[in-house]
């Protein structure tokens, strides 16, 4: 088993939204970033992986087993967007409950995280959004999971806390048998920590590649209208008209450079890639 998570042809239909043939693989020891607009289908995909939605078609395997198998959940740590323990209980109550929910729950690790994040033993409802997120992250990490599935784990966190979380995730991945699936709008963080990027748009995977390939090979060409007119449509993915000319997303900036005499070809950021893929024109 080289892949910790494998999704094949995942489809799910709602009245006004549809997941269409979502497929990707997450190898051992890797971090995959899920990116896309709000409502693109990232959370629905995560819900299908965790069986929170059940009436879908397709095949989902975790640790080589069907995701319907309850035993696999012992090895998964989760942070879900806005879903957690009821707010009238305290971190101590969570520790007491989780001791009997996960076989491998480690109270020491949990309490260490509480200290590290300076979380008091008070009702969750007294916590700020950032504190709640930290508590969710601490909870997800305290039963020695092998796979972390994190939906927006850094939303609501200040840059310092985000950096702290990023470091924790990088440390987690030092164990080569562990992997992380992480959906986030903080694309700068993903550029630093994700090994793979899977881009979901309108319920479809429109791109799933290694982060290095994306950031090194893809490029943004900045040119004038005259230069743009000379470019063959086959040689670019999408373009956008700007105040000063044209911005064109190309799949291989080296090849493009060899073919056309255009000087400004920048490295692409995930933000720019998302904007051009979604809002750009072909």
């Amino acid at each position: 088993m080289d892949n910790i998570l494998e999704i094949k042809n995942l489809c799910k239909k709602y009245d006004n939204f549809e997941l269409k043939n979502i497929s990707f693989k997450l190898p051992k020891g890797m971090i995959m970033g899920l990116i896309g607009e709000n409502g693109a289908g990232k959370t629905t995909t995560i819900k299908a992986i965790l069986n929170i939605i059940t009436s879908y078609s397709g095949d989902i395997k975790i640790f080589g087993l069907s995701n319907k198998n309850e035993t696999i959940k012992e090895d998964i740590g989760i942070v879900l967007d806005d879903m957690f323990f009821p707010e009238i209980i305290t971190p101590k109550d969570i520790n007491n409950s989780m001791k009997n929910i996960y076989k491998n729950w480690d109270s020491k690790i949990f309490n260490d995280y509480l200290k590290k994040f300076s979380l008091p033993n008070k009702q969750i409802k007294t916590f700020s959004k950032g504190m709640r997120k930290k508590l969710e992250i601490a909870t997800s990490l305290s039963h020695h999971p092998k796979l972390l599935i994190l939906d927006e784990p850094t939303s609501g966190l200040d840059p310092i806390a985000r950096d702290e979380v990023t470091n924790i995730l990088q440390k987690f991945i030092e164990n080569e048998n562990c992997s992380i699936l992480l959906s986030s709008h903080n694309t700068t963080d993903l550029e630093h920590i994700a090994d793979y990027i899977t881009f979901i748009n309108n319920g479809e995977v429109i791109l799933s590649k290694t982060t290095n390939e994306l950031l090194d090979k893809y490029g943004i060409v900045k040119c004038t209208e005259k230069e743009f007119k000379d470019i063959n449509t086959k040689d670019y993915i999408k373009y956008k008209k700007t105040k000063y000319g044209y911005e064109i997303l190309v799949e291989n900036k080296k090849d493009f450079k060899e073919k056309y005499n255009i000087k400004i070809i920048d490295k692409v950021t995930l933000d720019e890639l998302m904007i051009l893929m979604i809002k750009g024109v072909k």
Partner: peptide
């Protein structure tokens, strides 16, 4: 009232992702 808090904080969805969550 425990159902109301469960509902408000979406505990039911979260609990499903825990081992044997639906049954328990």
């Amino acid at each position: 009232s425990t159902f109301s808090y469960d509902n408000y904080n979406k505990w039911d969805a979260y609990s499903i992702s825990l081992p044997n969550g639906r049954k328990n």
